[in-house]
Design a protein around this nucleic acid. Structure first.
Lengths: 210, 210
DNA sequence: CAAATTTACTTAACAATGTAAATAATCCAA
DNA sequence: TTGGATTATTTACATTGTTAAGTAAATTTG
């Protein structure tokens, strides 16, 4: 069926057009500027055409949020060579902080906004990108426990805690809740990294000397 | 000037009418249902009248967000009798988690949404409610350090870390990022409390035995 | 090859939204 | 009572997401 195949291909091409336009708006002007009409304008179709390729706007945001996870994965390429699981975990946290501060709009979409999640819950499927990301953290946590860097326990629980910690830092920062406490914007990331250091020092049982 | 005084009083009465209506909509139907037109409908004025008492919608949300902080303060009334600063801090965290899960819409407004913060940054003033809340945490942290429960260090830094941790938990939970990992909704708060326990155990230097 | 049908797209429209400008009603002092 | 100030409303604009109806072209069918 070369014919149905080409059809499918063309459909995907326009889908990609739409996503590229959405991405351009998203990256250059932020979440709020991604409107159906501006997307349509960019791809030179009528607004309603967009609805022939995506059920609604949330579906577009879901797609963008997946791209965000790919971008985040790039930040984590520097982890491969790190042998020590605790050092790797620390670096993972630093990457997370840096990603969030470098791409706040993406971070927003991935971990804060409701739009991508709506897609998931109505489709009944699960949050694959998030699951994969937390899975990688869990592996490292498990290794840390095995090698005696972290107290033995439920790696899932600890992963959740670590994630919550860095997410808390990033989300407070990018939602302007730290402005009063860290007035100098230049000091924001350093302060967060320092907090991460403190955290890592506290959970590392090999560092405990009192 | 009994006359100008009454004028002022009447003005405040209508302001209160508007805020009460906004609160009703906010509490009963959520953030998205607080629209100028529905507020006007409730108070039986025309929509534009609202603008005679509030510059814009964000100003209303700023007022609501302050009420949220008052509500949160009520949750913390059980702290007064707790002597041990570390136990108090732990309870503070539990209260925070419970408040966030009990009033996700308020939490949203207070710690996630941009609207109330916009008011602040354009007015150039600072985030008083947030400042006060973190201040109380800082006091407790300081006391913990003085009494040897926490390693000595910058209490501000540690407060930020503690806050980030609980905020991370709550915000991930109420923004549906934990659904995949904690499928049973009933287990959400217990899981978060367990994470808090783990956290507290790790930072408490009196508990360290290996 | 002609007719019927499906596909791809557009136009028009609806129902909201926040908000500004113009207009009307009300109130109070002179 | 009159006239200026205050307060409220009417009207309007520019957006938004999204649906329904219409159209033209491509494709399938007879």
């Amino acid at each position: 069926m070369g014919i149905a195949e080409r059809k499918e291909k063309q459909k995907n091409e326009i889908r990609k057009l739409i996503l590229d336009a959405s991405m351009k708006l998203f990256v250059e002007e932020g979440f709020g500027s991604v409107t159906i009409r501006r997307i349509a304008e960019l791809i030179e179709y009528s607004p309603t055409t967009v609805y022939l390729y995506f059920k609604d706007k949330d579906e577009i945001f879901y797609a963008l949020h997946e791209v965000g996870f790919e971008k985040m994965a790039e930040f984590n390429k520097n982890l491969d060579t790190i042998q020590n699981p605790l050092v790797r975990m620390h670096k993972m946290g630093e990457n997370y902080l840096r990603f969030g501060m470098d791409y706040p709009e993406f971070y927003n979409l991935m971990f804060i906004l409701g739009e991508p999640m709506k897609k998931i819950s109505e489709l009944g499927c699960d949050w694959k990108p998030g699951d994969a990301a937390l899975g990688r953290l869990k592996e490292t946590v498990t290794e840390c426990m095995e090698k005696g860097y972290l107290a033995k326990g439920d790696p899932y629980q600890v992963s959740l805690a670590v994630w919550s910690f860095v997410h808390g830092l990033v989300s407070l920062a990018i939602r302007q809740r730290l402005e009063k406490f860290v007035p100098d914007e230049k000091m924001l990331l350093p302060t967060m990294e320092q907090a991460l250091n403190w955290f890592m020092n506290n959970i590392d049982i090999t560092e405990r000397k009192h």
